[in-house]
Design a protein around this nucleic acid. Structure first.
Lengths: 300, 300
DNA sequence: ACTGGCGATTAGGTTTCCTGATAGATAAGG
DNA sequence: CCTTATCTATCAGGAAACCTAATCGCCAGT
């Protein structure tokens, strides 16, 4: 016989432990901080053991709390997934996907209508955001991320790998000055992408690898890859682009690769989602479609 | 932002769905049936969809309810596992194992002191029961079962395979009448084990396979394998035994195998437990130990 | 037709939970 | 040093959730 403490106290603990703050937990659950404080006292009394250390400088979890927190998260995730299954919902239902703005505009959105065709009853809500999202906070079903993979407590499935290529507007190739070989980059404006985290090629790295002796820090910088590409399309200079993002512009001849000097990267695109979300048919459909699209796009 | 219905209603649903009876759910949760009924109404109102079909002939789940139920079970399992982790408990803690009485007495209990040596701080509670148990109802962490495997919604790991052999007290071999070959069984008392489900060799099946023409239904019957073995030790006749259960008596020469005619069976011993239980260190230790012991015992 | 088992329903009481106010403690800023 | 902001703890009172007890209707098996 399963004996559980008051369930609301568990939910409060899950939120408080995740935020490491009673106030933010209270905010999330739409109650006052006092309520959370009381619930935690009740829970700790029930257990006979403390869950939080109330240090003057902030809250932290005891070992017991630390150990239990992931299970609480996973447990409530499961319940939430179950609840969504209950809402029979012959009506339209929604999949929310969190994705970086550039990947959304350059890769995902152009393909979305194909998903709509396959699943007319499903609405996709694209939540474009630079930051990693918290699946418990925001109402996000699945995320697409570019990085090294291996996201803690979540299922990560590799979508596609990526390579870095230089791109520019076609006019620059035979312009004045011309752009025929890497050394010509010394005379070009370099456009920089600051959105990439460590581990992805920068101009400085690329130039060094290509043997071009030149300061790779000149030129305009953008914090979104899509802006970088649009600047390149507008002929503002030469950019280092992630191939998957540039491919549409390359195929439309709005961009060209001046010289083929690919830099593969260990980073890849990943679909990331909490285990419990896979139980929702609409989410499962979307993930399956994503993987199929990526498969098709991958061989280039 | 995760929006959940009243958690108590979900718990009530999980119990009601599992029992397919409001009364039994009420019993389990120690409330009145009316309370369950109300909770279900609240939940269905909240969802805007029915979860149960109230047929005159009994309760059944709607499709939505059916789909959601396993998630509720799993969700509460996770929460329960988390709660157990909270109770830091440097004190002694307990692993409850459900096992058939014969296997308990003939295999598990003789080895338990070795587990105690390895984990002195852990207490093992052996819950011997013929029936399959319900992990949610009873407070059982892990079960050992003899059968075909593949238990729904639970993790099943194969412990060891099994073979069926005839056994008897040593004195019967050269007794009067003697017991030298299968045909001599016509003159012996056959002891029957009724505890085995379909698919495990009976005397009738064994005699037919061995080409002995004889009615295999004579003789005393027991509903527990351990009683069968003890009758054989006492010289009451010849029994068909599961090797794993008889091995201790064979090694001690209280029993012998009159002629080697093994019958392998597709059934095997399995450790079975809910996924969430694996998170508990004491349960994980016990399962690991079980598998190691079985490994050692298996080669015979 | 009677009886027992099961679920639905209602009114009313009990427990749980939350609020709002208050206090203490800390850190940043003037 | 004092102010302000932020955070948690605590308490009393009230709101909301929850449960009981009693009753009804329905069916099945005496």
């Amino acid at each position: 016989m399963r004996k559980l403490p008051p369930l609301n106290a568990l939910r409060a603990f899950e939120a408080a432990g995740r935020h490491l703050s009673f106030s933010r937990a209270a905010d999330e659950l739409a109650v006052t901080p006092g309520a959370i404080s009381q619930q935690m006292r009740i829970l700790e009394d029930w257990l006979g053991a403390p869950l939080f250390r109330r240090d003057p400088k902030g809250l932290s979890l005891t070992e017991a709390g630390q150990a239990a927190l992931p299970h609480m998260r996973e447990g409530f995730d499961r319940l939430a997934a179950g609840v969504r299954l209950m809402k029979a919902s012959d009506g339209p239902c929604r999949v929310t996907v969190s994705v970086a703005p550039s990947f959304a505009s350059k890769w995902l959105v152009p393909r979305l209508d194909r998903f709509q065709e396959l699943h007319p009853q499903l609405d996709v809500y694209v939540h474009a955001d630079m930051n990693l999202i918290d699946f418990a906070d925001d109402d996000v079903d699945v995320a697409i991320r570019f990085g090294p993979g291996g996201y803690e407590g979540l299922i990560s499935e590799r979508l596609m790998s990526e390579t870095i290529v230089p791109v520019c507007a076609p006019g620059l190739i035979n312009g004045d000055p011309p752009l025929k070989e890497p050394d010509d980059l010394k005379n070009q404006t370099l456009i920089h992408d600051d959105s990439n985290r460590d581990g992805v090629a920068t101009w400085a790295m690329w130039l060094r690898a290509a043997g071009v002796d030149c300061d790779g820090n000149r030129g305009p910088r953008f914090n979104q890859s899509s802006l970088v590409l649009e600047a390149a399309v507008a002929g503002k200079g030469v950019a280092l682009a992630r191939y998957a993002l540039a491919v549409a512009d390359l195929e439309a001849a709005r961009l060209v690769i001046p010289f083929n000097y690919e830099t593969p990267t260990d980073f890849a695109y990943w679909v990331v989602y909490p285990e419990a979300k896979a139980a929702l048919p609409e989410v499962a459909s979307f993930i399956a479609w994503l993987k199929a699209e990526a498969q098709e796009a991958e061989p280039k």
